[in-house]
Design a binder for these strands. Structure first.
Lengths: 104, 104
DNA sequence: GCGTAATACATCGTATCACGAAGTATTGAT
DNA sequence: ATCAATACTTCGTGATACGATGTATTACGC
């Protein structure tokens, strides 16, 4: 899938993946994999960005003798998802324009 | 609208705008405006990129004593629009994931 | 006649961002 | 013992949207 199309989807995908319960890096990648391919370096960049934007909080937990970072979505993060749903109306309008104008 | 979401839409929008008939910079901006806001600097960057990718050809025409560049979509450009339609199935699946996981 | 908006195209610099590459460290199966 | 899987981190790079700025002409109101 085109890299450019993924942008704008990734952040909100990651947020959605931790919406119902807190999650951690490796799990997020696996959960999202059926929909978008997401490399580790990309994910950790996104998580850092979302943390700076206060859309999630981090908690380090020891799990089987190894440290694991759990990510928890904040109110701002939830609001971001809601905003995204609204923005999607505009995106869909653009899509309609493309398929209408771009008829074969 | 979020910049990131626009990426991947813009190129194909510009191509769609010249699908039914050849167009030029200023007209493309006006035609696309109801759907996406597009600055001149961005458009000319996109047109240059699409030209390099052989998705369009350029023709300079004198119009009211002033030069005007007409852009014509190529076979490759049309193919790009068709590809986009296919990719949209994946994009929609991602959207479904976000609204399902991100339920209030 | 003069200013201003609209038309039309072009260039430069910057900030954002996805990703590959490479690294560290542990657990568990072959 | 070796290798895959789990788990997180850092660095550098290329792509790219956009604001700022510039050039030049036409058209309209005052």
């Amino acid at each position: 899938m085109d890299i450019q199309l993924k942008r704008g989807l990734l952040d909100v995908c990651v947020l959605a993946a931790m919406r119902s319960e807190d999650s951690y890096g490796y799990k997020i990648i696996k959960d999202v994999k059926p929909y978008v391919e997401l490399s580790e370096s990309t994910l950790y960049t996104i998580l850092k960005r979302l943390e700076n934007a206060k859309m999630l909080t981090v908690r380090t937990v020891e799990h089987d003798g190894r440290l694991r970072k759990y990510y928890h979505i904040t109110e701002d993060g939830i609001r971001r998802i809601e905003e995204f749903k609204d923005e999607w109306k505009e995106v869909d309008a653009i899509y309609q324009f493309v398929i209408k104008e771009g008829e074969s």
